[in-house]
Nucleic acid binder design. Structure first.
Lengths: 364, 364
DNA sequence: CAAATTCTGGCAATCGTTTGCCATGGCGCA
DNA sequence: TGCGCCATGGCAAACGATTGCCAGAATTTG
């Protein structure tokens, strides 16, 4: 009698395990075992139970199970609000990929936006300490922390993605930004470019440090001085990529001696920058070569199609889930690992040899 | 003694309500009432309890509460996999907006991808029937249904978004697609255009029916025959917008008498189509005007900047959440409502009067 | 054929919170 | 000062599943 209270608007709440047991003519505990651990129950009994469950349309109550076993099967992904915008599909792809991997392993994905207010931090901490979340994937450099509670002490496995936080003790999944930018820059140098404009993300941001570092390494390897590259931007978030590109266009216009190649650290920046340059009469790649970052699908359809560094988001999502589930399974404190997923330079028509200064032999 | 079992690797599981009660010197039930329903408890006692809770870093266990009260505070959003791609930020914006509204009301957001396989349908049904989800926002035209369980019978409030499913009994939040397209088309007619190419989404899709309907209405209102518009596409999903645009470019090339204006039903289509047209030597908007759909931020930085119909996603998300919470609160069966959020035509330089056939007086 | 061993199924406690019901204490009013 | 009522706090029973422990059944071996 699961619904002996259907007198008034009481929620019917569906069939219970007890109903299945009664219909199958066995004890509740047998049903539980048959459903969770089929090996420990007679095959014929199990079949009978399965049939009864299907007939009743029985679905186990997740909260009751969770309460009893002391675990949930919900993973939360912590996304800073600043990630949403522009032309790249990184966030949707991350979500899609992570959710797919989690589903296959019987987990659910919960979204937790981390804004700059205490409310959202508290919300996330409640999820963590209240037993709702079993683990977290975080795309922010800041761990929520308020009133003495910190996500770091919640006892949850946490994996960082996009940002390397292995120093802070978090297993991290990142791309080889530095190397990718180094190679892209080297390619520009090989084409004959000697003066560069670098359009930066927020100053001090992990990605920006890595990417700019890659540029400098390439210059160094080619024997070019650090002064060969001019920085623009640094004051705005990646979220405002289009703005950054526009400001960079102004910066470019103000330069006495013009660079012949541009390295933009997001596709948004490249797109708005290129738009302004073309409005100003410049030809891409004739007058100016452009390389950018993110691998947004739309880059293939810009005029000219943009050379960009692809983020292998799908792989990253899978890797992050693998790391997290691993940490959940054997919850012994293992050392923080860093998984590097290789990004790929997609060569398109936005780069070419500079025309003004014809190709020279590489310096020494 | 919440942690009398800390002998081995047993999870500490944090302070319990009993610990708070002991520290505050009151009964457990008092703590519960103080936290949930502050009015029913002496102010001094409440303060003492609050202090004790804060001191211990107490967080109520969500699953225990959920089990007891028979409700969760998780809402799931059902996203067809086909929504992820292209240049538009509709999905991330929807998620951001919905999550924000839900958070403010004490709810959490869970992602549920609905692919074309039984696994994902079953997953969603388990969430619904297993008591994990309290309500659902669905962006798919198909309600998950398998083994006799259907989302429609799960007893959950459901709200449809983007698609009008009020016929199926679901409160729906949609934009005034038809009207918006009608106005955009009327604007093109006003500029002097008389022959149109319409680039379609999947045949029979709600959006496509509405949008094409809008075109026909505008033609009719201007006394133009239905033959004034040529359809392209219809066989691919919106997900493959770029592909559709490319095919449309081929279709355009094959036309004996060329349209002077193009109505694309997504920005992706417009972008790839325009790219091909320009490669073929056409000038936009000189030879061809283009209007598209979605209001992707990147449209502002295309060459030329694209005229597009903005989707007021933020408002839609808020409206969907409002509808859903309303349905949860007074769970009496109210009639399915349809909330229409107005979209806005963003005029940019991709449209102009046709040059080949100079502006004529409107027919009749 | 008897005894030992393995396997299957049932009982009941438990997870942490909420809440109906009752007892008690305080306060006001006459 | 005494009586009655209201507000406050405590007890214990749920919510729906899992699981350790034990009894009984089934199977095999000597």
């Amino acid at each position: 009698m699961s619904n002996n209270k259907d007198v008034l608007g009481e929620e019917p709440s569906g069939p219970l395990m007890a109903d299945v047991a009664r219909l199958a003519g066995v004890a509740i505990s047998t049903v539980s075992r048959a459903l969770a651990n089929p090996g420990r129950v007679n095959e014929k009994t199990r079949a009978k139970i399965d049939a009864a469950a299907k007939q009743l349309g029985y679905t186990p109550n997740a909260m009751a199970r969770g309460l009893r076993v002391g675990k949930s099967n919900t993973i939360m992904i912590i996304l800073p609000g600043s990630l949403y915008y522009g032309a790249s599909q990184v966030i949707p792809q991350v979500l899609q990929s992570i959710n797919k991997s989690l589903s296959q392993n019987g987990y659910n994905l919960m979204i937790a936006n981390l804004d700059r207010d205490e409310i959202s931090e508290r919300h996330i901490l409640d999820l963590a300490f209240g037993g709702t979340a079993r683990g977290a994937i975080i795309l922010s450099s800041k761990l929520p922390e308020v009133d003495g509670r910190s996500l770091a002490n919640a006892g949850l496995p946490i994996v960082s993605m996009l940002l390397d936080m292995s120093d802070a003790g978090l297993p991290s999944v990142v791309t080889n930004d530095r190397e990718a930018v180094r190679e892209a820059t080297a390619e520009l140098i090989r084409l004959g470019h000697r003066r560069f404009l670098y359009i930066a993300g927020p100053e001090g941001n992990y990605h920006d440090v890595e990417r700019y570092g890659g540029v400098l390494e390439a210059l160094d390897a080619a024997g070019l001085p650090e002064e060969a590259v001019v920085r623009s931007g640094g004051n705005l978030d990646y979220q405002q990529g289009f703005e950054i590109g526009i400001q960079a266009a102004d910066d470019f216009a103000a330069l006495a001696v013009k660079p012949t190649a541009v390295i933009a650290t997001s596709d948004d920046m490249a797109i708005s920058f290129m738009s302004r340059m073309q409005q100003g009469g410049l030809t891409i790649p004739g007058d100016l070569s452009i390389v950018s970052f993110d691998g947004s699908p739309v880059c293939a359809f810009c005029s000219p199609p943009l050379t960009t560094i692809e983020q292998p988001v799908e792989h990253m999502g899978q890797a992050a889930v693998a790391l997290l589930l691993d940490a959940i399974d054997r919850s012994g404190k293992e050392p923080a690992t860093r998984t590097v997923v290789r990004s790929r330079l997609i060569l398109r028509e936005s780069i070419a040899a500079p025309t003004a200064s014809p190709r020279k032999h590489t310096a020494r």
